[in-house]
Design a protein around this nucleic acid. Structure first.
Lengths: 354, 354
DNA sequence: ATGAAAGCGCTAACAC
DNA sequence: GTGTTAGCGCTTTCAT
């Protein structure tokens, strides 16, 4: 009884012993190597492995090969359907390409974001797809310098050329939404937004401005109502509540608006709710327009007119790019992907007759 | 120039070399070991590590220690807020306890679920928290036999005593909802549900039955309307659409119902939408009750009366249990956690005067 | 308090 | 076609 190995998980050594071959042969058979192995031994090994209930230990492999075929996805929140859609897209293509994806949420916490990225690096996850809340690119730079490839969906730091950029065109999105409202006869339009700390937000506003200017309409900072703070609620209602509560502010303005444009659907839904409190109904009394096109938007009443962000597609395409980048030895710089948003006309905007 | 190491990521060896100590000392300093190291060398090593931009390679550590401080969470869908809440709870406590959590979605695909579990095993992720869609427990059994610890939120196989059970009490939940409707004066109540393939669904229905029987009310299978199929839509609207479309069926019944009970909120929201199509308003014409209490439920109009599942709490407590289990050498069996649901009274149910 | 050395499970030269 | 062996980066006895 001296030969009894620890009754723990069997390794290739055990398989080799049982099959009566070398561990190299076992490895070659079981790891899908292209190395030639005779049919006879292959069968033998497979059988032995099965008999022992052998499960390969990827850690061993990873340590040796220094690659994990894994992509880490880091988003600010699981509550936001926009990110969830991106993840969906990523996961689907990644899986198809033989990659595993790990999903993390930073809960909009910069410190946590940094920690997670560093942990990914430590775990040799050399592919990172991220919607960042950081204002500095140093963590990601560090990540890249250590051999990682990064794809950025959102960020607040100046875009460097060291990673893949995959964004929805927010300027276009703002312009699209605003144009639509204008074409529907609106000219007194309020914009409701969370703080402009994120570049994407600023871009959206920029797009709105362009549209107004294009139509020769007046548009001042007064017309932009900014939520006083940003945070992450555990129940995912934050933005909804922002919209709902900012209605109070809006309603007391001297200037009367015929339409409200929210920088995302969740806020827009909150606005509709808030307006109900005042007995105002959408779109009869006032029109509301969102941005993102999350599932919720077609569930509420009235259904929300919005701008569809092809986030699912974005996730897919970005992931493809990512995998390409991970496979290449050399880093490609300045790869960029921009997805054009589309207008979705539903019930929450009324056509004004002039 | 013969000593130039590959200009790749520095390892402890490099740090040791620079600090002029042994790799053992470096490991002891940097890995937070309790082993005594003199302040002087500690400082030296730290400095050297910093200077080199050293990042520890967790893979090496994992291979050696055979533990990754990682918990894998596997849910059927990212679209369902109920799971998202659980994940939230898990992530928060796990992080606090120094564990990393990996989130996966099986997209309700049994095959994918199995693949993911096996991959986790291969990657030495020895903690699994899962809402399973599998009908067989064999994959999870295999996982456990190989040293994994599992915590089950939902499953369709007979509960074994080999893992931690963490469920919401669905029978109670069904009873609670039904009781409420009955107390509000309803006796003609329809139940709308997705297929009863999941045990939790069957339990819910069981609870409903109990409530009816308790009140001496009649309740036949006729009153249960079952969706013809189950699937996962990319846009997360599936259950909403089920609810919306099953209204068509319901409306044509001879028996007239005064209330509808949906087995989850998403379906309930769909029902409200569907009823609108027929010009029926909730709760004036008919009452609707949901189950789950997802954020959406307080966003729609009318706000949805439902049964709150403390999924966030469930995630937290389960995670605590999980970490305990992972720390213990010996497996504990039959640990179980059951969370009691709570009634949430909102606007979608009308009190009937008899 | 520090160092030398033996692996953790696996792959990939390199021999035969 | 198969076996031998040297590590991947790290922790951890066991000496010193």
């Amino acid at each position: 009884m001296s030969e009894t190995r620890k009754r723990l998980k069997p390794t290739i050594v055990d398989v080799a012993k049982l099959a009566g071959t070398s561990i190299a042969t076992v490895s070659r058979t079981l790891s899908g190597s292209s190395y030639p192995v005779s049919e006879a031994t292959r069968l033998n090994v497979t059988k032995a492995a099965e008999q022992l209930g052998y499960t390969p230990n990827l850690i061993g492999k990873m340590l040796k090969t220094n690659q994990s075929q894994t992509i880490g996805v880091l988003i600010p929140s699981f509550q936001n359907a926009f990110y969830i859609q991106i993840i969906h897209g990523i996961t689907k293509t990644a899986t198809a390409l033989g990659y595993t994806v790990l999903t993390f949420s930073s809960q909009r916490d910069v410190q946590q974001e940094r920690t997670i990225i560093n942990q990914m690096l430590q775990k040799q996850i050399l592919g990172l797809m991220i919607a960042s809340v950081d204002t500095s690119s140093s963590t990601i730079s560090h990540y890249i310098e250590n051999g990682g490839r990064a794809c950025i969906f959102e960020s607040n730091f100046k875009d460097s050329h060291r990673f893949i950029l995959a964004k929805t065109d927010m300027v276009e999105s703002g312009r699209l939404a605003m144009n639509y409202l204008i074409e529907m006869g609106h000219s007194n339009i309020a914009i409701i937004t969370t703080p402009l700390s994120k570049q994407s937000r600023r871009n959206t506003i920029k797009g709105c401005r362009y549209a107004m200017v294009d139509h020769g309409l007046e548009f001042t900072d007064e017309d932009i109502i900014i939520a006083p703070f940003e945070r992450e609620l555990d129940d995912g209602l934050y933005e909804f509540e922002v919209g709902r509560d900012l209605v109070d502010l809006l309603i007391n303005r001297v200037k009367k608006y015929t339409a409200i444009l929210a920088v995302n659907d969740l806020i827009a839904c909150g606005i509709i709710k808030g307006l109900k409190k005042y007995g105002l109904s959408v779109p009869q009394d006032i029109s509301v327009m969102g941005m993102d096109d999350i599932p919720l938007s077609s569930m509420i009443s009235p259904t929300l007119s919005t701008v569809h962000m092809p986030s699912y597609t974005l996730g897919q395409k970005a992931c493809q790019l990512m995998v390409d980048a991970m496979k290449e030895k050399e880093k490609r710089y300045g790869v960029a992907l921009s997805i054009r948003p589309e207008l979705v006309e539903r019930e929450s905007v009324k056509k004004l007759s002039r």
